[in-house]
Amino acid sequence: MDSLPSLLDGLSITLLLTFISLTIGLVIGVALALGRVYGNKIISSVCIGYIEVIRGTPLLVQLFILYFGLPSVGIILTPLSAALLGLSLNSGAYQAEYLRGSIQSIPSGQMIAARTLGMNRLQSIQNIILPQALRISIPAWSNELIYLLKYTSIAYIIQVRELTAEGKFIAADTFRFIEIFVIIAVIYLALTVLLTAIIDKIEKRLSIPGIGAAESIALRNA
């Protein structure tokens, strides 16, 4: 019971990490997806390169590079900012792929019709393609949220005092590993269920007849 306040502190860091990196990741993801689909050869190869490298390496390595590696070139980040940056950069690459799947599932007639109205490319993307692609991506986005929620725990390894870290400290003091980590597991499970339900609600509210989820987007484990 005494451990509750510090667990709550940890929980708030966990939620902070989750939501901020999801949001920054979305911005990065939109930019990367658009660059990959609509950019010229150079831009699209840069985007592909970024996406592949991030998806091809462990999050933990990325966090280590940011937190332990960058100081040697003079860039010193606090654990929290390194974690925020790493999770955002990482999530951006995955979100880009989900979004690309959605963009490519939109019939080409949508772009053509926008252009015949006199919209330029950018206007067409902004008004016609993206609003549809973002809606189609909501299930993938919900998946990504749950993924991030769980993987923020890795920030513990670079000394961020999020939920798992707080649990570990208490457990190490009290030697009650099982009790503490069962409590922590239950908190994560409850959050997963709660957040999934909230996103489902949002999805229902934003749903538009005839616009469904893109199929065959390979999601990461959430």
Partner: peptide
Amino acid sequence: RGIPLLVIFFLIFFG
């Protein structure tokens, strides 16, 4: 699927 791998590790290893 609902809990982080790290927590699973801690439960198994320390628990």
